[in-house]
């Protein structure tokens, strides 16, 4: 029996409901995230992966469906202390390290905000110690505590964003495209940092990205989304090496490969159909796909 930290049942999120421009951003999605794993969610822009991530952290209220976090239904949390407790256990790392940090707050205040809200520290020197410890954890020198975001490079800013997420010692972190605004060599640095932190802090990640090769590298299991639906779900190896859904196959075939010889003979498929509304079906142990038999 695997230990599920998060269970998502028939999650739907519709925007502009009842209007002519109603959008079914997430349309009946169900999956689980096991404690201690990295769950990768891939898909193109508009596939609903970010909306799903935000529903999981109670940043959006779902139109219908349940999000069960550690046995509790997140969508039913109403009392202030319940919500606060949930938000302390979960955190988010955002895509753009330029717009997700308040330019008028010092690095100390950015990282300490959560500590203050959740009353994790008793006094100022405690707070500074905690901020310094978190900064060291993500590879930033605590000497920079009084500096402002504009003084840092993109990679360093993303480290500040990660430090902010980890300062309150969450157990579940949703990272929404944390690499796409960064340079290649810096992307590798941040991925390695995230791997290290996962081990050091016993974290569970949901890693949202469109770059399937990076998702493959970091994830244990991968879910593939398209037009608000989850089309395929399985271990990272299964999804990459034995993709079953034609959309997954087309997505994989479009990923450029850093090898000129192979890149020139590689076949690419396109998938332009609207997928039929089918439930996920287990075809191999742990490998699910939304295809008719």
């Amino acid at each position: 029996m695997t230990d599920n930290l998060v269970e998502v049942h028939h999650l739907k999120k519709y925007f502009h409901q009842g209007r002519s421009d109603e959008v079914h951003a997430v349309d009946d999605v169900s999956f689980e995230i096991h404690r201690g794993e990295v769950f990768g969610l891939v898909g193109e822009s508009g596939s609903g992966k970010t909306t799903t991530g935000r529903c999981l952290l109670d940043l959006y209220s779902p139109t219908s469906g349940d999000v069960i976090y550690d046995g509790e239904d997140v969508t039913k949390l109403k009392k202030r202390h319940e919500l606060k407790n949930f938000h302390q256990k979960t955190a988010m790392i955002f895509q753009d390290p330029y717009s997700s940090l308040d330019p008028r707050m010092s690095v100390r205040d950015i990282i300490a905000e959560g500590l203050r809200i959740h009353q994790k520290v008793a006094n100022r020197s405690d707070l500074d110690d905690k901020v310094a410890e978190t900064m060291k954890l993500v590879g930033l020198s605590p000497d920079f505590m009084n500096r402002y975001p504009y003084e840092f490079s993109g990679g360093q800013r993303q480290r500040i964003g990660i430090a902010r997420a980890l300062a309150v010692e969450p157990e579940f972190v949703v990272a929404d495209e944390p690499l796409s605004a960064l340079d290649v060599s810096v992307q590798a640095q941040i991925v390695k940092l995230m791997e290290h932190l996962k081990a050091a802090r016993n974290l569970t990640y949901m890693f949202i990205a469109h770059d399937i090769s990076m998702v493959k590298y970091i994830s244990d299991r991968i879910g593939v989304m398209f037009h608000g639906k989850l089309l395929e779900l399985g271990t990272a190896d299964e999804i990459v090496n034995h993709p079953l859904h034609p959309y997954t196959q087309s997505l994989l075939s479009a990923v450029p490969v850093p090898d000129p010889t192979y890149e020139r003979v590689r076949k690419q498929f396109t998938y332009e159909k609207e997928p039929a509304n089918l439930p996920l079906r287990e075809v191999r142990p742990g490998h699910f796909v939304a295809l008719a038999e």
Binding site: V186, V191, D211
Partner: peptide, 14 residues
């Protein structure tokens, strides 16, 4: 530092 599908954990170098 460019990831590929055949990489295993620890293969990526930054």
């Amino acid at each position: 530092s460019t990831p590929t599908m055949d990489m295993n954990e620890g293969d990526l170098e930054s």
